[in-house]
Amino acid sequence: MATSIREQFRVTKKTEIKDENAALKPLSSGDKAADKVTVQTLALQIAEQQAMLYASHSKKVLVVLQGMDTSGKDGTVNGVFGSVNPEGIRVISYKAPSPLELQHDYLWRIHQQVPKQGELAVFNRSHYEDVLITRVHDWIDAAEAKRRYGHINDFERMLSETGTVVLKFFLHISKEEQRSRLQERVDDPNKHWKFDVQDLEERKSWDDYQKVYLQAIQATDTDHAPWYVIPANSKTHRNLAIANIVLETLQGMKLAYPPAKKELAGLKVS
């Protein structure tokens, strides 16, 4: 039996986060232009699936995008979900918690943003920041991280059991690729708005982030909320892989438009 694309990128206990794996392109045709056309085709198919999701107003989908700075979270939103009708999609970007958010548990602000019926929500960063940056900088210890993994697993199980399909993507770039992308932002005045000096500070903890990411992914990969590790040095291949997985998942949900209304049969609009 052929391996599905989801299975190809699904994390396993043997998964490792190595720089050399970030450049892999197993789905590429070898023709970048052709691959971009394929991504556009997949994006349109995702839009059609989302139209049925929105019309049926029953199921919900949550896509989580995580990765180091410059890994392509914004690019994924544009490339994979850019054709979806804005009525049926919501993108939420998480920054540092506000004073109000800090007065609550760390999942409080997350729960307010989960998708409603018929909606596809995309988290650009997410609740995983609370077991990543917090752990790298020793704001929480290993015992607290383990407790939070349990909280997250319970939270995502609740979402699944109440009708939300959860997909989690780690956009895996190499340290050298990040350096190149950061330098590009510095060199191009039109991209200065994307550059944050704090990114350079976080880059100093690169190895720690790779270790903590793998720990978090392994601890929270479940059948109801699977993790996928996506080689992301190639922006086109990144979008190709994620679009395939999203479409494969949506098609597996057996979405359909609501049944036709019998009372409208033969109705003539004057």
Score class of each variant (00 low, 15 high):
48 E>G: 05
95 K>G: 02
143 A>F: 03
143 A>M: 01
222 T>P: 06
262 K>E: 12
46 I>Y: 01
136 V>S: 01
195 F>K: 05
100 L>C: 09
224 H>Q: 08
54 Y>N: 11
3 T>H: 10
144 E>I: 10
229 V>D: 09
152 I>P: 00
136 V>K: 10
114 V>L: 09
132 L>K: 03
37 V>R: 15
58 S>A: 10
252 G>V: 00
236 T>S: 04
105 D>G: 12
75 G>P: 05
125 R>L: 12
262 K>A: 13
49 Q>L: 03
184 E>V: 01
192 H>Y: 03
242 I>R: 00
210 Q>V: 15
115 P>V: 07
186 V>D: 04
257 Y>K: 06
166 V>I: 11
148 R>V: 01
232 A>W: 06
20 E>N: 09
175 K>N: 02
41 T>Q: 13
43 A>R: 08
262 K>I: 12
50 Q>W: 03
24 L>K: 14
208 D>P: 00
17 I>T: 08
25 K>R: 15
87 E>M: 14
91 V>F: 12
218 Q>E: 07
235 K>D: 01
168 K>S: 03
263 E>R: 10
241 A>V: 10
146 K>N: 09
128 Y>I: 12
209 Y>G: 01
205 S>L: 12
96 A>I: 14
243 A>E: 01
31 D>A: 05
15 T>P: 03
222 T>N: 08
135 R>E: 12
204 K>C: 01
161 E>D: 14
111 H>W: 11
261 K>Q: 14
92 I>F: 00
216 A>K: 02
33 A>E: 15
263 E>I: 12
58 S>F: 04
144 E>D: 08
117 Q>T: 15
74 D>I: 02
231 P>Y: 12
103 Q>H: 08
231 P>T: 11
154 D>F: 13
45 Q>T: 06
164 T>I: 07
132 L>G: 02
7 E>M: 06
54 Y>K: 07
22 A>R: 02
14 K>R: 15
63 V>W: 01
95 K>Q: 15
101 E>K: 01
245 I>P: 03
133 I>V: 14
33 A>S: 15
85 N>I: 08
221 D>S: 08
233 N>C: 00
265 A>W: 13
102 L>K: 09
162 T>I: 11
56 S>C: 10
128 Y>P: 10
98 S>Q: 07
59 K>M: 08
270 S>C: 06
21 N>K: 15
234 S>T: 12
166 V>C: 01
270 S>G: 15
142 A>R: 13
71 S>A: 15
138 D>P: 05
232 A>C: 07
270 S>L: 11
207 D>Q: 07
236 T>K: 03
35 D>F: 05
21 N>C: 10
62 L>T: 02
100 L>D: 12
73 K>P: 07
184 E>Q: 14
121 A>W: 08
238 R>V: 06
57 H>T: 08
149 Y>I: 03
32 K>E: 14
5 I>A: 06
185 R>G: 04
102 L>C: 07
41 T>I: 10
214 L>A: 09
244 N>M: 04
238 R>M: 13
195 F>D: 02
67 G>T: 11
61 V>Q: 07
22 A>H: 02
31 D>H: 03
214 L>G: 02
157 R>E: 12
232 A>E: 11
201 E>S: 04
222 T>F: 04
69 D>R: 15
233 N>P: 03
242 I>Y: 03
165 V>N: 00
151 H>Y: 13
